[in-house]
Design a protein around this nucleic acid. Structure first.
Length: 486
RNA sequence: GGCUCCAUGGUCAAGCGGUCAAGACAUCGCCCUUUCACGGCGGUAACCCGGGUUCGAUUCCCGGUGGAGUCACCA
């Protein structure tokens, strides 16, 4: 019988949640859900020096808005807790001692100084621990322990042979044992290192599919050695290539350029971000790129995961975000973009839903709202030369004729909407015997005073309302007359 | 530097011995058009190099080159 799939996301609370981390989390979630399994959240805070206050809240918040729901975690204990490593200290020590008894680890009392003297013995200046304390007899160890000497516990890695395993995405991996160091499992402060904690926790929490970054690809044999020493069943592994900022640099929080919440602040929709990062390093069988979380769960597959690093392309994410925005109704747009609308120059002015209708096909992120809406915020003196339009064959006199005709016709219109206005203006163009553009273009310019606007003449007119539109029209006709008189 | 891994257009990527080497983003051109957009149509653009294996290599093997990861009392 197949074992229930259990995956986990195990971030360390060191600050913000960056995109690479989120993608790892997403894949672990997708894999678990696809197989009807459990997705566990575990907090790896064994390094108290890197701990950042509030970081755990960021993790919860990110998961929630990204639409990733964990089945278990510090806030949902299903019997495998605690799910925060700092609260499991005693557990690690217990298992470390067990591993020592089993011969898979040993106590080490070497001083920092002695360790430092081991360094620099090759070109890269890399040193390897010499297993000095492995030769200590049981009595010597007991004596040192009794004397209260500070100690660490190291893994005892064989010096010969090769360790191998099969990775779900990278295939067969084999590493010479001689290249692996006797890493520290328990630090002198009694806390475990990642090397040890992840093995113990994954086993105790019954994690059978370990999904994480490639940085662990070559150290995984060491973890397997521990599973073997304990007599535990090894989990399946799925390592993921990094997301890069460019060909050389990895995307990281160090550059402060890839935090999930930063993208939210720039006006990206969480669904779009999740959709985009799912596609970075994985591709579906078909060519549909816009996918919901459910689509992702259904279609996720290990063989679609790529082995090489992928460069993060914000331009493409913008495009995808634009597609999501285009599917929003004006009401939904307003709901989601309200903070951006309020922060723009039109704050509170005009009907937001009407603005939304104009903005939906014109912005790819909410962050672009401010600039799009800027020309609508004010009206005043402008250069009448703007009315000249070669391609449309519009000169200042022609513009004046059109505007004057508009001024006569418009006041009688009761239903001041885009559709009605458009119909009437089309008729007007026919009556005047001119191209429609020769009426619409001058009118748009006349009531907006701006060369480019997010919408046409009649849309702008509807937005401003009848009274304001006519007022502006009068202003522009005067401006044009003055210009022609000179 | 040792070890592990990777290598298709500018970017994300299909491909898994025989294809005119998909698709998407970006870019360019045209159409639509009342500006800006949306939309539609079309174009430019790729198998890192050198050896093998094979009737035939982007695909398999080896070497080179390039890139990533790792070599911590960080994860």
């Amino acid at each position: 019988m197949e074992e229930k799939v259990r995956t986990r996301f195990a971030p360390s609370p060191t600050g913000f949640m960056h995109i690479g981390n989120l993608r790892t989390c997403l894949y672990a979630y997708l894999f678990a859900k696809q197989h009807g399994g459990d997705f566990v959240l575990r907090i790896e805070d064994t390094d108290r020096e890197r701990y950042v206050e509030g970081a755990i809240d960021v993790i919860y918040r990110t998961l929630k808005t990204a639409g990733i729901e964990h089945d278990e975690g510090p806030d949902k204990d299903k019997g495998y807790g605690p799910y925060v490593q700092s609260e499991r200290k005693a557990i690690y020590m217990e298992y470390a001692k067990k591993l020592v008894e089993l011969g898979g680890a040993y106590y080490c009392f070497c001083s920092k100084e002695r360790l430092a003297s081991l360094g620099g013995d090759n070109e890269a200046g890399v040193h390897k621990y010499d297993k000095h304390c492995l030769s200590l007899s049981k009595e010597e160890v007991e004596a040192k322990l009794a004397a209260g000497e500070p100690f660490v516990i190291r893994q005892n890695v064989p010096t010969e042979g090769v360790s191998e395993y099969d990775d779900l995405v990278f295939g067969h991996i084999s590493v010479p044992n001689a290249d692996m160091e006797d890493n520290i499992l328990i630090k002198s402060d009694g806390m475990p290192t990642y090397n040890f904690a992840n093995v113990v926790d994954d086993h105790l929490m019954k994690i059978n599919y370990v999904i994480r970054g490639v940085e662990y690809l070559s150290s995984t044999p060491k973890y397997n050695l521990m599973y073997d020493a304990f007599g535990w069943e090894r989990p399946h592994y799925m390592h993921l290539s990094p997301i890069m900022k460019d060909a050389q640099r990895k995307l990281s929080k160090r550059y402060g350029d890839a935090n999930f919440e930063d993208f939210l602040a720039k006006g990206y929709l969480p669904e779009a971000i999740v959709n985009y990062i799912a596609l970075l390093g994985w591709s579906p069988k078909n060519n549909d790129e816009k996918m919901t979380m459910q689509d992702l769960i259904d279609q996720f597959s290990v063989d679609g995961i790529s082995k090489s690093p992928s460069i993060f392309d914000e331009t493409k994410m913008r495009w995808l975000n634009g597609r999501y925005i285009k599917e929003l109704t004006p009401a939904q747009f307003v709901e989601k973009a309200r903070p951006f609308l309020d922060a723009s120059a039109i704050n509170g002015k005009y009907d937001y839903e009407k603005i939304a209708k104009l903005l939906i096909p014109r912005v790819e992120t909410f962050g672009e709202i401010a600039e799009k809406v800027e020309p609508l915020a004010s009206f005043g003196e402008y250069d009448p030369a703007m009315f000249e339009h070669k391609k449309m064959k519009i000169t200042l006199p022609i513009a004046l004729t059109s505007l004057t005709a508009c001024r006569e016709v418009l006041p009688s219109i009761e239903d001041w909407t885009d559709e009605t206005l458009k119909a009437r203006l089309n008729d007007l163009a026919a009556e005047l015997g001119v191209k429609t553009g020769q009426v619409f273009l001058p009118l748009r310019l006349a009531i907006t005073g701006a060369a480019t606007t997010p919408g046409g003449a009649t849309e702008m007119a509807e937005l401003f309302g009848k009274e304001e539109s006519l007022k502006r029209l009068d202003f522009s006709i005067d401006l044009l007359k003055k210009a022609l008189a000179e």
